[in-house]
């Protein structure tokens, strides 16, 4: 992780703000699923239309796999959200968040010719908010802020001390 603060204060502020906002969103997605009784990703997977549709059907048809996917979804989102907000293991959180969002995107992408039975808010052609959020997370992984603004400060200093 970058050691020296080479950002201007404004750059730093905007990057941290973006980190907080995405963290807040993913954390709430996780928490709201956790709070919804009997929440399952089955409906979402059932709609799968593109290259992962076979994989999605395999998940649905396997009760234990589906349960595991649901569990990983909820706690993965919560962990990623917490990581981004607190600035703890931020690079790991950002990259896994981006990959998770890409999976969501690939399961139901807004491509020409793919129609979904569920109404979608907004209008998308190939690019959706999910895709943008995924790319934004990659950007956050490449422009780290947490070793200055975040609990990674302690992780870094602990690592440095051990290396000495």
């Amino acid at each position: 992780m970058k050691e020296k603060n080479s950002y201007t204060p404004l750059q730093m502020t905007i990057l941290v703000l973006l980190r907080f906002l995405i963290g807040w969103h993913l954390l709430y997605e996780g928490v709201s699923k956790f709070l919804t009784p009997n929440w399952t990703s089955m409906g979402f997977l059932k709609e799968s239309k593109w290259i992962l549709s076979g994989f999605s059907i395999w998940i649905i048809s396997n009760k234990s796999v589906l349960n595991m996917v649901d569990f990983l979804n909820i706690w993965g989102l919560i962990a990623i959200g917490l990581g981004l907000i607190l600035g703890l293991f931020t690079r790991l959180a950002a990259i896994s968040g981006a990959l998770l969002l890409l999976v969501y995107y690939v399961i139901n992408p807004p491509l020409i010719g793919l129609e979904y039975s569920v109404p979608i808010e907004g209008n998308y052609l190939i690019v959706s908010k999910t895709l943008i959020e995924a790319v934004a997370l990659f950007a956050l992984a490449l422009f780290p802020t947490s070793s200055i603004v975040g609990l990674d400060v302690f992780v870094t200093s602990f690592k440095n001390r051990r290396n000495k």
Binding site: L26, E29, S32, K33, T36, N38, W39, T40, S41, M42, G43, F44, K46, E47, L77, L101, Y104, Y105, N108, Y116, S117, V118, P119, I120, E121, G122, S128, K129, T130
Partner: peptide, 16 residues
């Protein structure tokens, strides 16, 4: 059916 549609992309809480 509890197969509620839920996607992070915003289709949240729409029901099948």
């Amino acid at each position: 059916n509890s197969g509620k549609v839920d996607a992070i992309s915003g289709a949240t809480s729409k029901y099948y």
